[in-house]
Simulated scan of single mutants.
Amino acid sequence: MNGPLSPRLGVSAWVVLLVLCFACPLARGNDARFTQADYDRRAAELLPRLPGPGFTVVVEPPFVVAGDEPPEVVRRHCRQTIRWAVDRLRRAYFSQDPAEIIEIWLFRDKASYEKHCGALFGQAPASPYGFYSASDRALAMNIATGGGTLVHEIVHAFMATNFPDCPAWFNEGLGSLYEQSADREGAIVGLTNWRLAGLQRAIRDNRLCSFERLCTMGDREFYRDAQGTNYAQARYLCYYLQERGLLQTFYRRFLANRDKDPGGCRTLQEVLQDSDLDRFQRVWEAWVLELTFPEGVRP
């Protein structure tokens, strides 16, 4: 189904541009979970829920995207950020698409984000950037802050199906790795980002927990860290593994070993070929202190 849908489908008098299009064929992961008709139906269900005029709805498998920027801008986000990331994340990690068709809401600025999240989800957003809500089958973004958070939250949507019991440290470490990302020979790679400075301060102040503690930390404790140090430590552990060519190996072994190694500590030792994580952490901390953001630019 292409082009605008008729107002008979429950849209009020204001005009909503609805674009139900597949700019490319139904590119899938290893599973053909949904058909084009499923996506068209899911997109049509959004019409009576759109929180205001001027929204564009685009089918971008495995998501349905709604945004209140100009239609060509919404489609560009779909093409240049969502499709770009999904294609590379599938190849690198995820054999299955999300178990349900998930909505992505792209709000043009802070005011739109805060207002419409309240209307759609019944509460103000906890993050100024964006979030993933499994219960709402939705991602919501203040897209004015950039596309990095969008890629981060897309990781969570895939992880929920492919590794549903993934601990917070690796779920957030992998997600935040791709907040600042690029293409390297057709693969997605994380780059250094704004979290680096706080992590370097924490290393100098001797405020980091051990890697063994990070791996065994419960989700509630991980998220209680108001300074974001746990996020940064997890991200740059993933970054180290990436730069050593070990990240995808770690993911696959951790996924396979999760029943025996739910926190990933033993798998990390195996992949690093180092049973002494305290010694490794000293090496890693020295390496992190040499990193720069932007990459290669000394302050």
Score class of each variant (00 low, 15 high):
L289Q: 10
G175M: 05
C78H: 01
R235S: 14
L46E: 06
A23F: 14
V57A: 09
T192R: 07
E172I: 05
R91N: 12
A111G: 09
A157Y: 02
A202Q: 04
C238K: 02
L174N: 01
L199G: 05
A85L: 04
G3W: 11
L246Y: 01
G67L: 00
G175Y: 03
L9H: 11
F63I: 01
T56L: 06
C166K: 10
F22V: 12
P167D: 05
F158R: 00
M217F: 07
R75W: 11
R41M: 12
A85N: 03
Q227C: 12
Q269K: 13
Q242S: 03
C238N: 01
I203H: 03
L20W: 05
G54T: 04
G146R: 00
G10E: 07
F63W: 01
G118L: 10
E179K: 03
G122R: 04
V297W: 08
C209Q: 11
L46W: 06
D219F: 09
D225S: 07
V11M: 14
Q227V: 14
E45Q: 15
P25C: 09
R244L: 10
A134I: 09
H77G: 02
A119Y: 13
F131V: 01
A13C: 09
H77E: 01
E285Y: 13
R75Y: 10
P48C: 06
A286Q: 11
T216K: 11
V58K: 06
E285I: 07
T216G: 15
T229I: 15
Q273K: 11
C209I: 13
I104H: 00
Q233G: 01
C24V: 15
V288Q: 04
A256Y: 06
L150C: 00
P53T: 10
G67W: 00
R90M: 10
L272E: 06
R298G: 02
M217S: 07
R252Q: 11
I104S: 02
Y178W: 08
M141K: 00
W14F: 14
R76L: 09
L20F: 10
P61Y: 01
Y251A: 01
F121N: 05
C238G: 03
E270P: 04
R235T: 15
A140H: 01
T145A: 08
G173H: 00
P62C: 06
F121C: 08
Q281G: 05
R79T: 09
R252G: 10
R42C: 07
E295I: 11
F293V: 05
C209R: 13
L50M: 08
L199V: 09
N142G: 04
R213H: 06
G173Q: 02
E103A: 12
P125R: 03
S275N: 14
R8D: 14
L196Y: 02
N30Q: 14
F94A: 05
P164R: 07
A43C: 07
V16E: 15
R235Y: 11
T229R: 14
